[in-house]
Structure formats: structure tokens, C-alpha cells
Computed example of a mutant assay.
Amino acid sequence: MSKLMLYMAPGSPPSRSVMMLAEILGLQMECKLVNLIKLEHRTPEFKKLNPLMVVPVLRDGDFVLSDSHAILKYLVSAYGGRHQETLYPSELKARAVVDQRLFFNASVFFRKVVNDVAFPTFLGAIKAPSEEHIANIEETYGVLDEYLQKSRFVAADQLTIADLSLGASATAAQIVHKMDAKRFPHGAEWLSRMEKEPVFQKVNAPGVELLGKLMRKFWREANEA
């Protein structure tokens, strides 16, 4: 195995999803911090790694890959070992469901939480989440709750890489708008279980705490200005 390096930010849900997988697989991965507040992801050097200028980015020897969902699939396929079949099953239909949940996170859940709320917060464009932001997040909670009526985890009856991806986004979403257990009982029960998973407590929770502190600080300062 070549040396693995992850360009990441601990407050970034996509970064944390990859870091959680590395923890589960026992991968020796060097993490290189990219300070998003200081716009280090917009430097010419980082743009050469990822023209989209977002984290995470994986370097595996000479191979460079961006997008957390692609990285999750690559790492579990290349280094999953005994965990591969449970985290990313090879059976066609089971794998397709995992992929679908990953695409849901990429195109809907993460975008409504981070792209629409966190990024504008750090750019000073909003002073707090709007009613539209809250409504959009509630809509994603509803979809997630529907998925969880079909299986114990988001894509299967065991934890998969889709849980790492959606779990990282869902825990970040609680900073903006907490999930109502009465309205979304399946989602709330799943989220509670995820937060108790050792890998979530060790890897994900500190990043969520950091992100929450940063967002609340920016909101407070924007409202005091």
C-alpha cells in the first residue's frame, strides 16, 4: 500500500466521512489541514490538486482523487478487506441502493445544509438561517425518514459508507436545525444511534463541535455589526 494523504478540514462533513472510514479500516493516513476560513482551498497550489477547490482530496501515491463520495468508494474497494462486503456490498442491487443514498447526500442533503447555509455564513452573506433554509432542511429530513422506514440503516440493515456520508451531514445539520423526533421518528432514532457509534464519537463529534462554534461565532458577530 502506498502512502495515503488526505487534504481535509475537521469542520467539513465530507472530510469527516472519509476520516471515519479510514478509522474503521485501520488505514494509516496522513491528514493535511486545509484552513477554509483563510481560503487555503483557493490557492493555486490547492487548485492543482482539485480544480473545484473543495475538500477532501485524497492522494494515494501518484493517484489524486477528490469528492468524498468517490473517495469512500475507492478506499473501501481498494483497502476494505474484511469490511468491504458490509460497507459497500458487491451484490448489484444492494450496491445500487448505497450509491443512491450517496448521490442523495451529494446532490441534496449536503447542499441544503452546507452549501446553502455554512458557506454563506463564513462569507458573511447571512446572519442566521432563513425560514427557507429551515424548510429545505426539514424536507431532506422527511426524505431521510422515508428511507429509514425500509431498513435499520440508510441503505441496508448494517452500517455502510452511505451512513458515514449522510451521518456526517446530518450531525452538521443539527447545528442549523435540530431534527424533530416526533415528526421524523425513524431519522431521529438512526441519528441517535449514529452519534453513539464509537467512530462517530471519536472522529465526527469533535468536528461537529468545531463547526458549530464557528458558525455561531459568525452569526453572533454578523448580528452585532
Rank of each mutant, 00 (worst) to 15 (best):
residue 196 K to N: 13
residue 180 D to N: 08
residue 218 F to P: 02
residue 213 K to E: 07
residue 204 N to T: 10
residue 197 E to M: 10
residue 212 G to N: 10
residue 178 K to A: 09
residue 192 S to D: 08
residue 182 K to D: 04
residue 219 W to K: 11
residue 199 V to P: 10
residue 205 A to H: 13
residue 207 G to D: 04
residue 219 W to G: 12
residue 190 W to L: 02
residue 188 A to G: 05
residue 201 Q to H: 00
residue 188 A to P: 03
residue 212 G to D: 08
residue 192 S to I: 02
residue 185 P to W: 08
residue 192 S to M: 08
residue 208 V to C: 04
residue 214 L to D: 06
residue 217 K to H: 14
residue 209 E to A: 13
residue 178 K to Q: 08
residue 188 A to V: 05
residue 179 M to I: 06
residue 206 P to L: 15
residue 206 P to H: 12
residue 193 R to V: 04
residue 178 K to N: 04
residue 196 K to Q: 14
residue 192 S to A: 13
residue 191 L to V: 07
residue 192 S to L: 12
residue 179 M to D: 00
residue 190 W to V: 05
residue 216 R to K: 15
residue 189 E to F: 06
residue 198 P to D: 13
residue 214 L to Q: 14
residue 221 E to G: 04
residue 194 M to D: 04
residue 214 L to F: 11
residue 206 P to E: 06
residue 178 K to C: 04
residue 207 G to S: 08
residue 204 N to R: 07
residue 217 K to C: 05
residue 178 K to S: 11
residue 212 G to M: 11
residue 195 E to N: 10
residue 219 W to E: 13
residue 204 N to G: 00
residue 202 K to I: 12
residue 187 G to L: 04
residue 179 M to G: 01
residue 180 D to W: 02
residue 185 P to V: 01
residue 221 E to A: 14
residue 218 F to E: 12
residue 206 P to K: 11
residue 198 P to F: 15
residue 186 H to G: 00
residue 190 W to S: 00
residue 210 L to Y: 14
residue 206 P to Q: 03
residue 192 S to F: 01
residue 204 N to S: 07
residue 195 E to T: 05
residue 177 H to G: 00
residue 212 G to E: 12
residue 187 G to D: 03
residue 221 E to L: 15
residue 179 M to V: 13
residue 186 H to R: 07
residue 198 P to G: 06
residue 207 G to T: 02
residue 209 E to R: 05
residue 211 L to H: 13
residue 190 W to F: 01
residue 186 H to L: 03
residue 211 L to A: 07
residue 193 R to I: 12
residue 192 S to Q: 05
residue 196 K to Y: 00
residue 217 K to A: 15
residue 181 A to D: 10
residue 186 H to F: 08
residue 180 D to C: 01
residue 197 E to D: 09
residue 206 P to M: 13
residue 216 R to T: 15
residue 187 G to S: 03
residue 193 R to T: 09
residue 191 L to C: 07
residue 184 F to K: 06
residue 190 W to P: 03
residue 216 R to L: 15
residue 201 Q to V: 14
residue 183 R to G: 01
residue 189 E to Y: 01
residue 212 G to I: 04
residue 205 A to D: 13
residue 203 V to G: 03
residue 213 K to Q: 09
residue 192 S to N: 08
residue 192 S to R: 07
residue 204 N to W: 15
residue 221 E to V: 14
residue 206 P to G: 09
residue 200 F to E: 06
